[in-house]
């Protein structure tokens, strides 16, 4: 029995810059993961309910607009509210280092910023995310 890791890549809020998200989606596909891509301009509500319907193991949020301090914790909170706190949330984008702690405390598992190699992100997922 082979368990396949399912990941949702989502762009919350008013931010249309999705090249990074697309590159990650492609990289995850090549790593053998199944990736659900939602497109841009998603509300946290849309992301949380889609993640549950898709039964993903991980939600990767990409945000370049500066609204990550609101949007990332909100997704974590909504998942928890719906009994899906076991779905891990990670984030990436233009995120100042001084915001990391706030995000970790809010339940975001890891934050990836420019300069992180694609392999190291895939490795992080392999180490930290398992089905069941």
């Amino acid at each position: 029995m082979e368990r396949k890791i399912r990941i949702m890549v989502a762009k919350p809020g008013l931010d249309g810059h999705d090249r990074g998200a697309r590159i990650l989606a492609r990289c995850f596909r090549d790593a053998g993961f199944e990736v659900i891509y939602t497109g841009c301009h998603q509300t946290p509500e849309q992301i949380a309910s889609a993640a549950i319907q898709e039964d993903v193991d991980l939600v990767g949020l990409s945000c370049l607009s500066g609204a990550h301090k609101y949007l990332f914790p909100k997704v974590v909170e909504l998942l928890k509210e719906q009994g899906a706190e076991d779905i891990a949330v990670i984030g990436g984008g233009i995120i100042p280092e001084q915001d990391f702690d706030l995000l970790y405390k809010a339940g975001v598992k890891e934050v990836f910023t420019p300069g992180r190699s694609l392999e190291s992100i895939v490795d992080w997922i392999r180490e930290n995310i398992s089905v069941q």
Binding site: A25, R26, F28, R29, D30, A31, G32, F33, E34, V35, I36, Y37, T38, G39, A50, E54
Partner: peptide, 8 residues
Amino acid sequence: GAILGDRI
């Protein structure tokens, strides 16, 4: 792997 994009 797969990219599932119909949802968009």
